[in-house]
C-alpha cells in the first residue's frame, strides 16, 4: 500500500507476437517503489513472457517498457545490478556449497548482503556448508530467493515461485517474501496462477488473461469492481428458482414486492474474487 511512491516499473501497451500468434496484446500496468505486485493469470496468459521482457531476457514486439528508468532491451550491467531475479533452479551449481555460492555471486554487486546474514534470513543456516545438490526442493528454493536478493535489489522478480511446493514449503516461502517486502524498500513483481498466493502476498493484483490485463487493483477492489453477478436462489410454489444479478438487494426487493411471503428458502450468494477468477480461467481454457 504505497500509493505515493515513485513509479519504478512502467509498462505501456506491451505487445509480443510469435509468428502470427499474439501472446501479449497491449499490456499496461505500473508498480511503485516498495509495492508487492502480483501478476495473476491462468497458464498461457502471458505472465512469463511479460516478466521475461521486464527482466531483459526477451525482446518485445511493440510497446513501451520502463524498468528502474531504463528500457530492459538496452539495460546495461549497472542497470542489471539493481535487479534481483529469482530463477527456478533445477540443478545448476550443484557442487557449490551454499555459503560459497552466495559469497561468490555477491561479489558481482557493489553492495551485496553478507552471505551468512542472508543465509540466516532465508533460514538455511544449518545448511550453509552443504552442497547445493544435497538440498531438498524447498531448501533450494530458499537459496534461489537468497540469490535473487544477494545484490540488495531495488526490484525483485519472482516467476511462479511456488510451483511444485508442498503446503508447508509454500507457507514458509510466503513468510520469507512478506518479510523481505516489509523490511526493505524492495519492489516485488511476482507471477502466479494461484489466487490465494496473490491475495496473501500482494498489495496489488494485476489479472492477465489471453495477453490482456483484465483487472488491476487490491484484492478488495477486484472483488468489488470486476465482480460479477451475485446468485439469488428461492422457492416459489414448490419450485426452485436461481437467478444471477448485478444488484442482489434490488432484485430481492422486487421479488418480495411481486410475490410477498410466497417466497421461501431465499439464499443470496455474493460473487467472490475466486468465482470471478475461476470464470476467467475457464474462459481462457475454453479458447485454448
Amino acid at each position: 500500500m504505497n500509493d505515493g511512491g515513485e513509479i519504478v516499473l512502467d509498462v505501456d501497451d506491451l505487445r509480443m507476437r510469435y509468428g502470427t500468434h499474439d501472446v501479449l496484446r497491449g499490456v499496461t500496468f505500473q508498480a511503485r517503489r516498495g509495492e508487492v505486485l502480483a501478476l495473476l493469470g491462468p497458464n498461457g496468459a502471458g505472465k512469463t513472457t511479460t516478466i521475461e521482457i521486464l527482466e531483459g531476457f526477451r525482446t518485445r514486439s511493440a510497446g513501451r517498457v520502463d524498468v528502474l528508468g531504463d528500457d530492459p532491451a538496452h539495460g546495461g550491467e549497472a542497470w542489471r545490478a539493481r535487479l534481483g531475479i529469482v530463477l527456478q533452479s533445477w540443478r545448476d551449481h550443484g557442487k557449490w556449497r551454499v555459503r560459497e555460492l552466495l559469497a561468490h555471486l555477491g561479489s558481482y554487486y557493489p553492495d551485496p548482503w553478507d552471505a551468512s546474514e542472508l543465509i540466516a534470513t532465508v533460514g538455511l543456516t544449518e545448511h550453509a556448508d552443504r552442497q547445493v545438490r544435497r538440498l531438498s526442493g524447498g531448501q533450494r528454493r530458499r537459496l534461489d530467493v537468497a540469490i535473487g536478493m544477494v545484490g540488495r535489489p531495488e526490484l525483485l522478480f519472482l516467476d511462479e515461485p511456488t510451483t511444485g511446493f508442498d503446503p508447508e514449503a509454500r507457507r514458509e516461502f510466503h513468510d520469507i517474501v512478506l518479510g523481505l517486502s516489509r523490511t526493505g524498500g524492495t519492489t516485488v513483481l511476482l507471477t502466479t496462477h494461484d489466487l490465494a498466493e496473490a491475495e496473501k502476498l500482494a498489495d496489488r493484483i494485476v489479472v492477465l488473461d489471453g495477453g490482456r490485463i483484465v483487472a488491476d487493483g487490491t484484492a478488495a477492489e477486484l472483488a468489488d469492481r470486476i465482480a460479477g453477478e451475485d446468485e439469488v436462489a428461492w422457492t416459489l410454489d414448490g419450485r426452485r428458482h436461481v437467478a444471477s444479478t448485478r444488484d442482489a438487494t434490488r432484485f430481492v426487493r422486487a421479488l418480495f414486492a411481486e410475490h410477498g411471503d410466497a417466497v421461501a428458502g431465499l439464499a443470496v450468494r455474493p460473487s467472490s474474487l475466486e468465482d470471478t477468477y475461476l470464470a476467467l480461467v475457464r474462459q481462457a481454457e475454453g479458447r485454448a
Binding site: F57, L87, W90, R91
Partner: peptide
Amino acid sequence: VEREDGTLLRARATPHGIRA
C-alpha cells in the same frame, strides 16, 4: 550442460555474469 541446467541463465541474470 550448463546451458541446459540453468547455470548460464543464472550468469545472465547477474551483472557481468556471462563474461565472468
